[in-house]
């Protein structure tokens, strides 16, 4: 008996001997350029950096994610410290990134570099996770984190709050640009996880009523420098 793989491929080749008509589409699509073709039809991500930032702020507000804009990295550290004090965080886990170490050092509570000595039980006990990100999608209010930029897979999902520190230059207009950027940056060495985070974790499973903080963070903060 042939193995399952060859069997399935044989069935597919047999099935595709009869062609199916192409769906209606005005204009020829270019291979791998779906986003370029669809750009004028999708939600607007802004044509200028300024326009993109305005759209981003609007989207994040609708998603109940908090945007904190600061002029420089020193103010970013101050803003995160104030946040930790206001929320009475006791333990904050952070990704060991040069931009985040000064922020962590300014925290008024225990700070732990989670990716240096990863321990899932300890991470579960943290009030917040502090990470950087790959890029931010204005069009959708989505923040792209990766196992490379955000201290692995769990740091941005397990603690009860997630704080992202990023630079305004990391904002891209749309999802297509963010995917293209990730491909250009990592090539065929993609981080094992890339995740678009669009607002705090949520569910509507009970009577379709929105509740924030289903399994992931209840609170999401984006501290944007510049």
């Amino acid at each position: 008996m042939p193995d399952a793989r060859s069997d399935i491929f044989a069935r597919i080749r047999e099935a595709l001997k009869v062609k199916a008509p192409r769906p209606h589409l005005k204009g020829e699509p270019v291979a791998g350029k779906t986003s370029a073709a669809a750009k004028p039809w999708l939600p607007d991500g802004g044509e200028s950096a300024e326009a993109s930032l305005a759209i981003l702020a609007e989207q994040l507000a609708k998603l109940k994610a908090m945007l904190i804009r600061v002029p420089d990295h020193a103010s970013a550290a101050k803003a995160v410290a104030e946040l930790a004090a206001a929320k009475n965080w006791k333990k904050v886990a952070y990704h060991g990134h040069p931009l985040l170490r000064p922020v962590a050092a300014a925290l008024p509570c225990e700070a732990w570099e989670a990716d240096a000595s990863f321990e899932k039980q300890r991470l579960e006990g943290c009030d917040a996770g502090l990470t950087t990100c790959e890029s931010i999608v204005a069009q959708l209010g989505a923040i792209l984190v990766s196992s490379a930029s955000s201290g692995g897979r769990a740091l941005s999902i397990l603690p009860h709050a997630h704080v992202v520190v990023a630079e305004a230059a990391q904002v891209v207009p749309d999802l297509g640009s963010a995917l293209a950027l990730a491909k250009a940056r990592h090539g065929d060495q993609m981080p094992s996880m890339l995740s678009f985070i669009t607002g705090p974790s949520r569910t509507g499973d009970i009577e379709r009523i929105l509740v924030l903080g289903a399994h992931g963070p209840k609170e999401l903060y984006l501290v944007l420098v510049g």
């Binding site: 999708l42 939600p43 069009q139 959708l140 996880m193 995740s195």
Partner: peptide, 28 residues
Amino acid sequence: LDDLSVLLPMLATAGAGQPMTCYNTLYS
């Protein structure tokens, strides 16, 4: 990968009335 720039938002909008769902994650 670029196909997802259309499919992910449309999946969320058509399915749940969201711009994108909270987490859209790629594992490699």
